[in-house]
């Protein structure tokens, strides 16, 4: 296991005051805020910053870390001394057991066995286990047929000694057909274990869709752009359109314009009621790349006397 230099993570000196540490944390919390950050690895960086803050902002954890880590450099091979059990009182600084479970192995090795798990969240565990949450990323196509996905979780588990260990858990989850972005799937009894004789909590999975090269979603509606030739738009045509549920034939009405929308009722994400597929037409003209084609365009220019910038056209 590699030593983590939390002071380096926050960019402060080892002897930094609590006030300086707080300032450094807030500066970084703003920089890597997941909703606004433009940094590519913002989420991972924020996790590291949170972990460092969790330790350095708590006097007990900081003292334990300083004592253990004296003389270690970032990335150096590290093992806590045998029988390590810090005589310090730890708080979790507003971080939940679930969030602490998401911190590094280094963190859980030192602090996971200790007081970080005490407090309000634990006190309530006297009965039914807590509900926990996780995110699952799906492809848009998955919502059409239902799919089975592996979901990996890192869960805290209290041992009989009162220590807390973290373990990885993989669940095979059947995602029901018709799931929409932002929806929550409840897996009964898959949350945190309850106290003796009490049921476990539920696991709440939040659904996200990966960006798709052709489809976009808006609730249960499926949006896609379909290119059409100028004559198809002008004269009307039946064109094949590939949807996640299979290919359909769509009638393009006579006189359609680029940007015009066609709504296919019930062809969006399945559900009660199902969403619609909304097709945006994009007129694409062929290149005038041979003398014959040039002459056809020239004929059109003469015959139509068409100025698209004039109103009324």
């Amino acid at each position: 296991m590699q030593f983590k230099d939390y002071y380096q993570t926050l960019g402060v000196a080892r002897g930094a005051s609590a006030e300086d540490i707080k300032k450094a944390f807030r500066r970084l919390a703003r920089k890597y805020h997941p909703d606004v950050s433009k940094e590519k690895d913002a989420e991972a960086r924020m996790k590291e910053v949170n972990e460092a803050w969790n330790v350095l902002s708590d006097p007990g954890k900081r003292a334990a870390y300083d004592r253990l880590g004296a003389g270690f450099q970032s990335g150096q091979e590290f093992r806590p001394p045998p029988g390590w059990d810090a005589p310090f009182e730890f708080s979790s600084r507003g971080f939940s057991p679930g969030e602490e479970a998401d911190f590094s192995d280094f963190f859980s090795e030192i602090f996971g066995r200790m007081g970080g798990m005490r407090g309000g969240a634990r006190a309530r565990a006297a009965g039914r286990g807590e509900d926990t949450r996780a995110r699952v990323q799906l492809d848009i196509e998955d919502a059409f047929g239902g799919v089975t996905r592996q979901v990996s979780l890192r869960v805290p588990a209290a041992e009989a000694s009162g220590r807390v260990s973290f373990r990885d858990r993989t669940l095979n989850v059947r995602i029901p057909k018709g799931v929409a972005a932002g929806q929550v799937i409840r897996l009964a009894g898959q949350g945190a274990p309850g106290a003796a004789g009490h049921p476990a909590g539920d696991l709440l999975l939040e659904v996200e869709f990966r960006p798709h090269p052709r489809y976009r979603v808006d609730g249960r509606d499926l949006l896609l752009t379909v290119p059409v030739a100028p004559w198809e738009a002008a004269l009307g045509a039946v064109v094949p359109v590939h949807l996640p549920g299979g290919e359909v034939r769509v009638r393009v009405p006579e006189g359609a314009q680029s940007g015009g929308q066609l709504r296919l009722r019930g062809k969006g994400i399945p559900g009660e009621p199902p969403g619609d597929a909304i097709i945006e037409l994009r007129v694409v003209q062929p290149p005038a790349d041979t003398p014959r084609r040039r002459s056809l365009y020239e004929t059109m220019a003469r015959e139509f006397a068409f100025d698209p910038r004039k109103t009324g056209n």
């Binding site: 989850v173 059947r174 995602i175 029901p176 929550v184 897996l187 709440l204």
Partner: peptide, 9 residues
């Protein structure tokens, strides 16, 4: 039975 059936909320 390795698979969990989710309930859609």
């Amino acid at each position: 039975d390795d698979f969990l059936e989710g309930q859609l909320l």
